[in-house]
Design a protein around this nucleic acid. Structure first.
Lengths: 324, 324
DNA sequence: GAGCTGTCCGCTCATTTGAGCGCATAGATC
DNA sequence: GATCTATGCGCTCAAATGAGCGGACAGCTC
């Protein structure tokens, strides 16, 4: 299309008049055509030109509050996520970022959960603050998805599960077991415990899970930081790239079986994969490959994060062929 | 309408997704509804909310070049003008502003004139540079509308009329007479001259005129500056507020008969009023009341000006009840 | 529980809109 | 001058859209 040239100032002005009336005053093209004495087709073509030449600028922007709706929407489109929540939190203060993201995840959870859901919970430092932000919840059953990891501040996974359940008034299915045991036999024995078996029996009915995404690198994963260097390297050698709810995944985002699995009390990868909606939480630009993998492998369907990680993900997707 | 609350982050993000797809990607509401699995009505309501809450910002902006299409369009709407051309020229250098506005008027004239038009011309310092900017014109007849005023640089109305006619190749109807004569008898005698009577006989067939708007104040009108203080005051006492092509108008924009009229060689006010399209040129914020009057009285149907006068006019219209 | 109120949702129908077509005019090429 | 191409314009028909309606449901009051 030829568009508006500087040679025809009256055409340019006419386009601006049409655009004002159409976009700003909300008049229909037929109405504009009648007022200006031109055909509705000309109105439509002028509007096209005005948009093409950049005379009309349309921006989908942030709104009050910390939620960046535009970035969130971009994430959804770029990765096919069902939900994304990108918050404008500064990166510099990590504990504060964790706390606020935990609250954000709580907001998101309250918003998207329905009374018919069965909620699975896992733990991370970010998620431990989630319950505090909840103000209303339907009385869904809450299922503990993994064994516990000793938290620095004493607020462990059982507290989280119970805290969430308390708000809604639904049943909490918790059990006492560590996430990693010394050997496979012990782990197998632990799994036979009634409360653990009971909780795990509920996993297939879980419709929504909340998980944190860890990256297989120092300081970016509770598990990585909690095992021996030899174990770390062994898993890295198997292609482990990230971890969520104790499930290891590779660069392609698919679960990777590891020697550690038999010693762990976690929802197995395939079972996690079958949960209809997994809401993930992650922060830090350095985790972008891990999050990218989890999304690519369809392990997670929702993401709560902050702006800089969101942008890092989008540039990864651009470079490596996201689904845009 | 309730709109999007911060309590429903997923709703906000959904609205942003819908807005992105609708405005940025150009997908139809039905298409968006299908993709997102919601009804097209919900899509429409989300878009309404997004616009209402300011999440979607639509701006009709300037484009390359000096023409401010947005302001031009606003002037058209606010005053019911058929054409407006607002240029982004700085106010500080008056001779440069005059020159550029003259060129702008030339651009505008080239753009809006048609081969079937008959063009009437009057003179002002701004208009004297108009012909230089013309690159193409239809061969319209050009009619001199008023007697001449001695210009500082020697480029008078006859030069202008002939210059414009030369570009298009149409006939130039000029005559030799000053704009103001010493007494009514002389003026009447002059009007009987064949060339003058001939030109004036063409006035009823003129379809488009180009005029400058002068304000009835020192330095803002060629005529004001060229008569005696007593005459100035007499006209001011009659309510003269502005002047265009030698026609005096009052605050209401209607022609005012004055004792000077009988001594002047100009197209009479009623005749000027009957010209279907009068393109006016004006600059300087101090002229805004004069321009406002001319527009209000329907004496002019188009305006070439610069941004600050345009803004002054708009604020006048706001304050005094424009036709917005 | 009955009744009330406000909100959200999707339907119908009339209007608006877009895609594609053919006509008319302007300018280029021979 | 004849022909050809490009461009702008408005038409038709099918699809998209908006206004307004009534039903479903949640929260309240009595």
């Amino acid at each position: 299309m030829t568009g508006l040239s500087a040679e025809r100032p009256s055409e340019v002005v006419l386009a601006a008049r049409v655009a004002r009336q159409f976009y700003l005053e909300g008049i229909s093209k037929v109405g504009i055509a009648d007022r200006l004495g031109i055909s509705r087709f000309r109105v439509a073509r002028l509007l096209d030109s005005a948009r093409e030449t950049g005379m009309v600028r349309i921006e989908i922007g942030l709104r009050g509050g910390s939620l960046d709706a535009g970035l969130s929407a971009e994430l959804c489109s770029a990765f096919g996520l069902r939900h994304a929540f990108v918050f404008n939190f500064p990166d510099d203060d990590e504990p504060a970022l964790r706390r606020r993201l935990g609250e954000g995840a709580g907001q998101a959870l309250m918003d998207i959960i329905t009374p018919s859901d069965v909620l699975g919970m896992s733990w991370s430092r970010t998620l431990s603050g989630l319950a505090a932000a909840l103000t209303q919840m339907p009385p869904c059953p809450i299922v503990q998805l993994t064994g516990a990891v000793p938290p620095p501040d004493g607020r462990d996974l059982l507290d989280l599960v119970r805290g969430v359940a308390r708000i809604g008034g639904g049943p909490a299915h918790v059990f006492y077991a560590p996430m990693i045991l010394a050997d496979a036999q012990t782990a197998a024995a632990v799994r036979r415990q009634a409360d653990i078996a009971g909780a795990f029996a509920l996993v297939p009915s879980v419709t929504m899970a909340v998980v944190a995404i860890g990256s297989w690198a120092p300081g970016l994963s509770t598990i990585y930081d909690g095992i021996t260097p030899a174990e770390r390297d062994a898993l890295a050698g198997l292609g482990v790239c990230a971890e969520l709810a104790g499930v290891f995944i590779g660069e392609d985002g698919r679960p990777v079986a590891t020697p550690l699995d038999s010693r762990m009390i976690v929802t197995p990868g395939p079972a996690l994969d079958r949960i209809p909606f997994v809401l993930s939480v992650a922060y830090g630009v350095s985790k972008s490959p891990a999050v990218f993998a989890a999304i690519r492998g369809d392990m997670v369907h929702g993401l709560v994060t902050h702006a800089s990680l969101a942008r890092a993900l989008l540039s990864l997707a651009d470079g490596r062929g996201g689904r845009r």
